[in-house]
Design a protein around this nucleic acid. Structure first.
Lengths: 182, 182
DNA sequence: TCCATGACGGACCGATCGGTCCGAGTCTAT
DNA sequence: ATAGACTCGGACCGATCGGTCCGTCATGGA
């Protein structure tokens, strides 16, 4: 008999928070800034996300969803595990080169909250573990050994850390590595 | 005609602050915790370091001094640029494997304060630029090309980011790479 | 039309932040 | 011995933190 809740509110708030968290870091951004960026009342924010920790966890969950969406999109036209691996790495390189790139959201969070073990930190670790397992799976699918997987993971880590200008080097090297091991 | 200032105070405070900053992050540590860990009065801390930003800058300067000391120590018994490069990387691997390792202090700071441009951030960037230039110099000294330097830098970045269990892979790979290019 | 509900802005809370200041005690040069 | 610099613990400051609450207004269903 009354008003219905606005439908997209949660997404609006989460998007605004995610932008701020990614750009400046979770610790550096206060809830007041999130409210201001979302253009809603503080009340509404806390109805959807009961604490900053849960908002941060939702931020990482959103980042993971976006990450997996664009990864599966990149893997769509790759046939076979080798091409998929190359596509995955070159897609990461695209992200690194994108203007406004501020590093890997999950690695950044684990650096900001190093030593802590809250929900978001566990989610970040889980994402990294899963991605590493995905690399292992793809490498193993065409007979590559553990050393190759380790080296590719090393390249991926360096790719995220390094300057965008070196992204091409990482992709080329990974491709060379993968094709040579075929 | 009065008391002389205690000699080692500044180092004591800085050491305590550096330990906390490195373990938990600069943003996560308050000045009260620094005072408590240093075992001194708050006003003494502020006499030696007029602000938290300057304390953070001093922390990075100390990290750089330690870093360069142990690097030159590692390079002492290496003859020729190739051996020096390998020694440098395996020394980084030793650091990564050390218990209590929490990542590269400079990369961590730039992640925590991303987008900001204070004294400490500039010092961190300068350290990374200088280290990268050192790699370029060592590679160029024995005729290696820019691509090789890029790849070694990629390995170093991945080495700092990756799990300690993969440090050996990075060192072996770098050695293989360097010796093959000889 | 009317009222129940959703949403907003902002006051407000205790805690903590970085930073200042002061009183009391301690040590040393004269 | 005594004065003056040094140091400590802690009170204190304004600002901001995360989080709660309330008064008011907008809105949509009955």
């Amino acid at each position: 008999m009354a008003r219905t809740p606005a439908p997209g509110t949660r997404e609006t708030i989460l998007t605004a928070a995610a932008g701020l968290f990614y750009e400046h870091g979770v610790r550096a951004v206060g809830m007041a800034q999130v409210v201001e960026a979302a253009g809603c009342g503080k009340n509404l924010l806390y109805r959807h996300f009961p604490s900053k920790a849960e908002l941060a966890a939702a931020y990482l969950a959103l980042a993971r969803r976006e990450r997996e969406r664009s990864a599966t999109e990149a893997l769509r036209w790759a046939s076979g595990p080798r091409e998929q691996l190359i596509a995955l790495i070159s897609e990461i390189a695209d992200i690194v080169r994108r203007p406004g790139y501020r590093g890997c959201a999950f690695r950044n969070y684990l650096t900001e909250f190093r030593g802590e073990d809250d929900v978001a930190a566990r989610a970040a670790k889980a994402y990294l573990d899963d991605t590493r397992a995905e690399v292992d799976r793809l490498v193993g699918e065409w007979g590559g050994d553990g050393l190759l997987a380790d080296r590719i993971w090393l390249i991926i880590n360096g790719l995220y850390a390094g300057p965008p200008s070196q992204a091409g080097v990482a992709v080329d090297w990974a491709r060379e590595l993968i094709e040579a091991a075929g």
